[in-house]
Design a protein around this nucleic acid. Structure first.
Length: 478
DNA sequence: TCTGGGGTCCTAGGACCC
DNA sequence: TCTGGGGTCCTAGGACCC
């Protein structure tokens, strides 16, 4: 807890939907819903225009379509959101070395650590300037909360939404929180809220009155104690810029339930491979393999197996996941499968063996020379040291690009036409693809339809939302 | 056309060790 | 032989968040 409101929380407004509206001028001011478009999709983000009709995150897409049949429905384009997120995080990094991203569109910043602000006036000025910079660089709006703690800064940004700034003056926390419903506190969701309601606790004031012992009795040791402190407005968690991920997982919900055991097995193996790809891309390895199964009736179970050492070997993870599957009853059908790896390390067991071998060799007085790749902090992604296979990667891929693969025109994705220029796919089917020709910063554009195999039409990368603004990592840094 | 995907943290019981 | 406790690891599930 500090006496100056120098913890900043930034939350971009309706981030995915706003990014799509910025990318597609014809959607500005219109209801836009981003999420899964399959039969079992849910809403990721709805634009404020769509929220007015009751659409919100996590709502089944089918329900959203009933509420707003005329909205634009789009799949998420994470490459675009990540690029915009990088721009925003770069701006935050200019304020302080202590930036803690919570997701693509949210972060805490410790303004004191950066020397950017030391009191109410300077903090407010920094927040105001940040919002202006974000708008200038990304074309999007973000809301800012400023307070003396993470919890209050987050509550402040929520109150600031959309497109605002709220500063909570230190010392006023308790009176501000007291009349609020308990659900305002982070960590109080539907279950805890209901639990407390049944105990006659509806507001933060009542939470504080109940006392720590009572809350621990109701909710358990950690949760009860944490909630009591938060109810008093007390929160001294530091902004942590160095959080490392603790697990990696992938999962798929199928459009229709899977019944065929062989098919289930194949899907599990595919998921294991995708999971390992992500693991390796992050330069990590893991010891515990987790299989997740959601059955036809939505009942969900997990089975896990801890290996003797960390691995990033697809075969090892695939086989572990396969063993775990054998112990699961899938009669009735499978709705979702997932494979995850936790117990992450920066080294694999093979690395350790290699290290041990190197050490042993060194001890034996042999190869004193260069072997010592390892070392502590190293990012060094290098997979196993042993000779072998490394040559195996690029050429197959290179060859494939040249071949005329069947192109799929994904709704909402960017394209470029040799004659008409940049646009995006509005829809496709029966051999035709409909494109709207517009781009960030342009006037709303017109629609044209082409044959799906029109050679003048090609997929393209997302364009910067503000023409001319630099997307970090795209061109040379400068 | 009910209910995504990627995470974090906590609890609780059993095994095992001291 | 009985009694007791503490700590750590593993597994499974649940709540919560974006």
């Amino acid at each position: 807890m500090r006496t100056a409101p120098t913890i900043l929380h930034l939350d971009m407004d309706a981030f995915f939907a706003a990014a799509e509206q910025a990318a597609k001028p014809s959607l500005r001011g219109k209801a836009v819903v981003v999420g899964g478009l399959g039969p079992r999709g849910v809403v990721s983000t709805a634009s404020y225009e769509a929220r007015r009709f009751g659409v919100h995150s996590a709502m089944p897409m089918s329900q959203a379509r009933r509420l707003v049949p005329n909205a634009a429905y789009l799949v998420p384009r994470f490459a675009l959101y990540r690029a915009v997120s990088d721009q925003v995080m770069e701006l935050l990094g200019r304020l302080s070395p202590l930036v803690e991203p919570l997701s693509l569109d949210e972060a805490f910043v410790d303004l004191e650590a950066g020397g950017a602000a030391d009191g109410e006036a300077s903090a407010r000025a920094v927040g105001k300037r940040l919002r202006e910079d974000i708008r200038a660089v990304t074309g999007l709006t973000g809301s800012v909360g400023l307070a003396g703690s993470k919890m209050l800064a987050k509550i402040a940004s929520e109150q600031a939404k959309p497109d605002g700034l709220v500063l909570i003056v230190p010392g006023t926390e308790r009176e501000l929180l007291a009349p609020q419903p308990v659900r305002i506190l982070p960590g109080v969701g539907p279950a805890t809220g209901e639990h407390l309601r049944r105990a006659g606790i509806a507001t933060v004031a009542e939470l504080a009155e109940a006392g720590e012992d009572e809350l621990v009795r109701l909710l358990g040791k950690a949760h009860g104690a944490a909630l009591y402190r938060m109810a008093l407005g007390y929160d001294d968690r530091p902004v942590n810029a160095e959080r490392e991920s603790k697990s990696v997982s992938v999962e798929d919900t199928f459009d229709v339930d899977l019944h065929d055991r062989v098919r289930v097995r194949i899907e599990v193996e595919r998921l294991a491979e995708r999971c390992v790809e992500r693991l390796r891309a992050a330069g990590r390895s893991g010891r515990t393999v987790v299989l997740k199964v959601r059955r036809y009736d939505f009942s969900t179970l997990t089975r896990s197996e801890t290996l003797r050492g960390p691995t990033d070997d697809p075969a090892v993870v695939r086989e572990a996941a396969g063993r775990l599957l054998e112990a699961v009853d899938t009669t009735g059908g499978v709705r979702l499968l997932g494979v995850g790896v936790s117990g992450l390390a920066d080294f694999t067991q093979e690395d350790l063996f290699a290290q041990a071998a190197t050490a042993a060799a060194a001890a034996a007085g042999e190869g004193a020379g260069e072997g010592a790749a390892s070392g502590g902090g190293g990012g060094g992604g290098g997979p196993a040291a042993d000779g072998g296979e490394s040559a195996a990667e690029p050429e197959a891929v290179a060859g494939e690009t040249a071949a005329p693969v069947e192109r799929r025109w994904l709704a909402g994705h960017d394209v470029r036409h040799a004659e008409f220029g940049p646009g995006w796919v509005q829809g496709s089917g029966v051999g035709r693809v409909t494109v709207r020709f517009e781009e960030p910063g342009s006037a709303p554009g017109r629609v044209r339809t082409f044959r799906v195999d029109d050679p003048a039409l090609e997929p393209s990368e997302p364009l910067p939302l503000v023409p001319g603004a630099l997307i970090p990592g795209a061109a040379g840094s400068g």
